[in-house]
């Protein structure tokens, strides 16, 4: 299917939009290729834990990432490889964390998607859904107290399943009460692990909840990069300019299992055939070619270059030493003098 005709899209043809589209596309492609390589490492038994792909969600994720800038706060979730790359995470952080390298940001102590650099505004998610949002709120509140909030925003990502948690409700209400520049991005990918949306929520569209929290609400086709960029940029700009918290709900379909251990046989085949089941990467490529922004050859070259870089980074990380348990500090507290000397952990 071809994208919207140029004349119907007021932003098409604007160089700025074209450049942003191309940038976002490259992060989508990078994330897709990186995900595929990680899946292949998983299948060959090279990864200790699970692997969680963003297939089908790259347009939304990369779209958000390119709308953020240095100094913002970003709390990605499990399917945000594209947004992470766009926000500035180097792919070696991802590969090191998946492979458990002690040189990675989580130093072998945490794995896969649980990675970040809090001091650089990139929060490492915990597994409990909705838990990151109030942390973003707290960072924004702190900056406001320190009088250095400026025009920075905080963005948090979640799936539709995570919206059923108490943490989500508490955090959105908090952001509304404090009128924080929070951008809440919800990928409604139709399944929370195997649970379909009719067992997850009862409203027609999750964006209806925005009004209840005092958020501006936006809905966008999560399979269309152009639309994602337009909507996300508007939401981020709103937050930057003091118009309060923003919620974006993007219907799309997860084009993979929950993790690579999951064959996703429960996904309704009719959804796969519907508009929701379109592959956002293919749609973006079709538009790039149709608009004349990139040629098929250029796309092919980007793909080869990215693959070579990914493979080289994986090789580098695979040569790194594994962690040494006897060299671990085993210190959960930063205050060493307050370590509890329990007799039960090792023989004196």
């Amino acid at each position: 299917m071809l994208p919207t005709a140029v004349s119907n899209d007021p932003l098409a043809g604007v160089a700025e939009f074209r450049d942003q589209f191309i940038r976002a596309y490259r992060f989508m492609l990078h994330a897709r290729l990186l995900d595929e390589r990680l899946a292949s490492l998983y299948r060959s038994g090279k990864i200790f834990g699970g692997v969680f792909l963003g297939r089908g969600q790259e347009a939304l994720s990369a779209g958000l990432g390119v709308c953020l800038r240095q100094g913002d706060v970003f709390a990605p979730l499990i399917r945000d490889a594209a947004g992470r790359l766009a926000f500035g995470e180097h792919m070696i952080d991802s590969i090191r964390t998946y492979l458990g390298s002690p040189l990675g940001p989580m130093r072998s102590r945490d794995g896969n998607v649980h990675r970040g650099r809090p001091k650089e505004g990139l929060l490492p998610m915990i597994s409990h859904l909705g838990a990151m949002i109030s942390v973003v709120n707290g960072m924004l509140m702190a900056r406001r107290m320190q009088k250095r909030l400026g025009t920075s925003v905080g963005a948090a990502c979640l799936g539709e399943g995570g919206t059923s948690t108490g943490a989500f409700h508490e955090a959105l209400n908090q952001a509304g009460v404090e009128r924080l520049p929070l951008v809440m991005v919800i990928a409604n990918n139709q399944y929370a692990y195997s649970t379909p949306t009719n067992r997850q929520f009862a409203c027609d569209n999750l964006v209806e909840r925005a009004a209840g929290y005092g958020f501006d609400g936006h809905t966008v086709d999560g399979t269309d990069l152009g639309e994602c960029l337009e909507t996300l940029q508007k939401a981020v700009d709103n937050a930057r300019s003091g118009r309060g918290p923003q919620m974006i709900v993007a219907p799309l379909l997860r084009l993979c299992g929950h993790g690579e251990h999951d064959d996703s046989s429960y996904i309704d085949p009719r959804l796969k055939q519907s508009e929701l089941g379109r592959d956002c990467l293919e749609i973006a490529e079709q538009r790039l070619v149709a608009e004349g922004w990139l040629s098929g050859e250029e796309i092919g070259r980007s793909r080869s270059e990215l693959l070579a870089a990914i493979d080289e980074t994986i090789s580098t990380v695979q040569r790194e030493s594994a962690p040494n348990a006897s060299a671990e500090s085993w210190q959960a507290l930063s205050t060493v003098s307050l370590r509890d000397m329990s007799s039960g952990t090792e023989m004196a």
């Binding site: 973003v136 709120n137 900056r143 955090a171």
Partner: peptide, 15 residues
């Protein structure tokens, strides 16, 4: 919102 209170405290501590 005890969950969000502590979450916000963690965020503020990071900052």
């Amino acid at each position: 919102s005890e969950d969000a209170m502590v979450g916000a405290a963690i965020g503020a501590a990071i900052e």
